Computed example of a mutant assay.
Amino acid sequence: MPSNYSIRPNKHVDRELFVELVGRTLSSTQVDRCAYISMGGPQMTDQIAMYRRNGISKLYSFDAEQNIVLRQRFNAPTHETICEAHSAAELPAKLDDISYKLDVDRVIVWFDYTGARQRGVQLAEFQSLLKSLSSGDIARIAMDASLPPEKFKSELPENIRNQHFPAMKALLARELGEYHPEDFELESQNDMPRYLSKCIEHLCDRAAEMDPNGEVSFCPMLQTCYTDSVPMFTVTILVQDANKTPAAPDGFSYLANDWGDIESLEVPELTAREKSYLDRLLDRNADELTRELGYDIARAAQMPRQWTSFKKFHRFLPQFQHVEIK
């Protein structure tokens, strides 16, 4: 999978939505008292965006592979950015030291996972993270939203393996263990974002119950689903106190109303010239757009969805520009 978000438009839009949401959430906060922490990847794309767009200069990135960490240090947006080699599972125990070293009161943490075989472990790591956060902190998780591989159906009892979606639900229950919502009805691949959202809702309820003072709650601010090389699901959560403060930003157009509110990102792949031209045609419907252009920008079955998604998220699409660095 290419790591350059600019050639992965849905991923790019998702990241830009998150960066804008963080900026709006911190609008009344001193950003020099906030730290951004994530699996920055070799290109440090989200770290750079947080620094340039929101002014967050206290940055921390991590990865389990030492070579990726070395690339992170080279590509870091500031000389003060800290890049360390460790796993997501190790981060919660390090948060106090990281906050002390960076001299911050508030953290924004993104666990950006890949792969569908360890989702139970990933949810356990995210729950551990939530238990380490305080009111005003922000947590985000991105997960593979694929159905389990069909080859594993052969390991199920015969009365289930020949029924596709009951078999998929049984495999998910085996994979996710205690996080699996038994009452969820899985009927298609399109149900997977809602399934994972329900898993994380239950996880947040459990983390809140474990709070020794009973003063923490978790509010979903943004949920998205999209297809990259695989289906993906993300949720961004605001940690609140017992009085539901701080509040999520009212002015953010894509703010989730509840756990069932998930934004579907399905933007078309466009040239820079097409993007610039289509920005002026937002009052058209899909049929009018096709007549105006003289050709389809997506397959016929996808066209209405992709045009709707473009109109909703067009300002977040990547802008291509030729740059030479000598």
Rank of each mutant, 00 (worst) to 15 (best):
S154Q: 14
N190K: 09
L123G: 02
V121P: 07
L21D: 00
L289T: 08
R280W: 09
Y36I: 02
D261A: 03
F218W: 02
S197N: 00
R291V: 07
I325G: 01
Q319W: 13
L26C: 04
F313I: 04
F74T: 12
Q240N: 08
E90S: 12
E215K: 11
M168E: 00
Q189W: 10
V13S: 07
T308N: 07
E150A: 05
I68T: 14
D191F: 06
M192V: 04
W259K: 02
M1N: 15
R174V: 00
L147C: 00
L156S: 03
S253R: 12
L70A: 15
N213Q: 06
R73V: 11
S99L: 04
F74E: 13
Y36S: 02
L203A: 05
M303S: 11
Q223E: 05
R53Y: 05
I237H: 03
A300C: 06
E187K: 11
Q306M: 15
P149I: 00
E84L: 11
Q127G: 13
T290F: 09
Q223C: 01
K244E: 08
P92K: 10
Y295F: 11
R291Y: 06
P246Q: 13
D112R: 06
Q72R: 06
S188L: 03
D32K: 13
K311S: 01
I37V: 07
L130Y: 05
L270G: 10
F233T: 07
T81A: 15
T81F: 15
R161G: 06
G41H: 05
A49C: 05
P181V: 06
T245F: 14
C225Y: 09
E182F: 10
R291T: 08
V323F: 13
G120A: 07
N243Q: 13
N162I: 08
V69W: 09
D137K: 04
P246R: 12
A248P: 02
Y60F: 13
S128A: 15
